[in-house]
């Protein structure tokens, strides 16, 4: 397995090159680029600028593990509003187009968002149809769409079986699960998601979770690796069982208050332990 970390983790005020140097120095193999998170990758970024971005990533001795986006929460493809849906598809289609330019074969999307106004019964068919539409483009671009399990935040596809049925309904080899092992909270066990989805897993986000806390106010439920309730030996073993040998991508919600660069080193070292299984 290889280690990556999101460019949205690069400390505030740091430029791209300084950030990439930090990622490399901390021991990561790649970087996850978030469309919309930083000035260097926005929907308005031209193809030429994307090529320049890839060059800078390579110059730092890194590769791009995948492309994610920050827009799906505000512009979900499951929205009732056709204008919002159009904007969602525009963002996602650009994301798919950018991925091969950055020499990666995976994108992340948050597929579907259930709210008080837009019920599950509407979100499901709209999301299946929307992802099917995107899958065609992804197939042409030789990119896999990883739908992330943002279980409790999405209020959608809460269990591994439910997620599996969703992927069955989408029915495309170009669509799989971008598994976030920190997002399962107290509704299940990430190792069981790994066992059930196996080869359908496109990429993996890692963070730890404080199950007992839940989401309350501004206090984050997420924490650094090994500080929370995830069973990391079990997660390691489940990856071995299903033969997952792809990217692990750090996605920390909490940030170090001081010495923010230290979080990169600590996270990389913890991920080495997850990968090696030495607990």
């Amino acid at each position: 397995m290889k280690k990556s970390i999101g460019d949205n983790m690069i400390p505030q005020g740091w430029g791209l090159d300084r950030g990439l140097a930090l990622v490399k120095k901390a021991g990561f193999d790649g970087i996850e680029l978030w469309l919309g998170a930083k000035p260097w990758l926005q929907p308005t970024t031209t193809d030429q600028q994307v090529a320049d971005l890839l060059r800078r990533v390579k110059n730092a001795g890194l590769v791009v593990s995948n492309v994610s986006n920050t827009f799906d929460w505000d512009f979900p493809i499951s929205s009732r509003d056709p204008k919002i849906r159009d904007q969602a598809f525009q963002n996602l289609e650009r994301q798919i187009a950018i991925a091969p330019m950055l020499e990666t074969d995976a994108i992340l999307m948050v597929a579907g968002l259930v709210t008080a106004e837009v019920p599950y019964s509407e979100v499901y068919p709209r999301t299946v149809e929307g992802v099917q539409r995107l899958a065609e483009q992804a197939g042409r671009a030789k990119v896999r769409i990883g739908c992330e399990n943002c279980c409790s935040e999405q209020r959608f596809l809460m269990s591994p079986r439910e997620f599996g049925l969703f992927l069955d309904d989408v029915g495309s080899p170009h669509v799989g699960l971008h598994l976030d092992v920190g997002n399962i909270h107290d509704t299940g066990f990430p190792e069981q998601w790994i066992e059930m989805h196996g080869a359908r897993i496109t990429r993996v986000h890692v963070k730890d979770v404080l199950r007992h806390r839940g989401r309350c106010g501004n206090e984050s439920v997420y924490t650094n690796l090994f500080l929370g309730d995830n069973n990391w030996p079990a997660i390691h073993d489940a990856f071995k069982k299903v033969g997952y040998d792809g990217w692990l991508i750090a996605e920390m919600e909490s940030r170090y208050r001081h010495a923010p660069d230290q979080q990169f080193f600590d996270t990389a070292a913890a991920m080495d332990r997850v990968i090696s299984g030495s607990f």
Partner: peptide, 10 residues
């Protein structure tokens, strides 16, 4: 299987 076990018995 027992409480507190951290490795899966595969």
């Amino acid at each position: 299987w027992h409480e507190g076990r951290s490795r899966m018995p595969y």
